[in-house]
């Protein structure tokens, strides 16, 4: 099911990942293959402990696999040192976390500025770009407030704004709707889906929330450390064990 190279956003091939000592080894990924196309929103689903988070971490370059290759927008990650991986994450990735991870002592706009400031952008430029993207996600007027003063949906919008402010090609969302109610979750996913519609972008979402499966272009199901199948239609999934 391999796609032409110019259409591939990321590709993980034959990835092995295990933790612990050789005597007490826990296998997290076993010859896992996973691929996504540009302009696609792909979801990664599966029961707890099947290796979703590990695979996501490998693609994000926060974990280095023991075997296999990982390529993200044409850049091979396997073999890169920590510094190069850090640079890769800084330039190429945007993160939306399950618990938002917004810094409570900073204002909304300051939280959104973080990725730009990590890149070394001037403060004023970062501020202007953060304001612009907050406007886009519908948070104009809330810029100077603290994240804790916002609703869950608004906080997730801030997180999305933070993930996108530096225009990364790959957006990684880890359980983005788990802390949100159904309607808010649907709004957030619609926004994420709209953002994925660019040939220079790809969105991968790890989720247990079957209510949002309809927003996916494709859904990859994981089982025992590998992708067991990829479907285009959520109805084809058996969600009883998710």
């Amino acid at each position: 099911m391999s796609h032409p190279a110019h259409t591939v956003a990321f590709r993980a091939t034959g990835v092995d990942m295990f933790f612990g000592t050789p005597e007490n080894r826990v296998v997290a990924l076993k010859q896992a293959d996973f691929e996504a196309r540009r302009g696609e929103l792909i979801m990664l689903v599966g029961p707890s402990g099947c290796g979703k988070t590990t695979l996501l971490s490998v693609i994000a370059g926060t974990l280095t696999p023991q075997a296999g290759t990982v390529e993200v927008f044409g850049q091979r990650l396997d073999g890169l040192g920590q510094e190069a991986l850090t640079t890769f994450r800084r330039r190429s990735l945007g993160f939306v976390f399950q618990s938002f991870n917004l810094i409570p002592t900073l204002t909304v706009v300051e939280n959104v500025m973080v990725p730009l400031l990590i890149q070394g952008r001037p403060f004023d430029e970062a501020h202007a770009r953060a304001l612009a993207i907050l406007d886009k996600v519908g948070l104009k007027g809330r810029e100077e407030g603290r994240p804790n003063a916002l609703s869950g949906g608004q906080q997730q919008r801030v997180a999305i704004a933070r993930a996108l402010v530096h225009e990364p090609p790959l957006l990684i969302c880890d359980e983005p709707t788990s802390a949100l109610d159904k309607d808010t979750g649907a709004q957030i996913m619609q926004m994420v889906r709209d953002l994925s519609r660019s040939p220079e972008r790809c969105v991968v979402v790890v989720t247990h929330d079957h209510r949002i499966f309809r927003f996916a272009d494709r859904i990859a199901e994981m089982e025992d450390g590998r992708i067991s199948r990829v479907v285009d239609d959520p109805k084809l999934l058996d969600t009883t064990h998710l």
Binding site: A60, T62, E83, T86, T87, F88, R89, R90, R91, L93, F95, F97, S99, N101, I103, V114, P115, I118, Q119
Partner: peptide, 18 residues
């Protein structure tokens, strides 16, 4: 108290030097 935020900043691409 800020550990998870520092971890997030690390994940976003900030090196330990920063």
């Amino acid at each position: 108290e800020n550990l998870k935020y520092f971890a997030a900043i690390k994940a976003m691409g900030a090196g330990m030097g920063v």
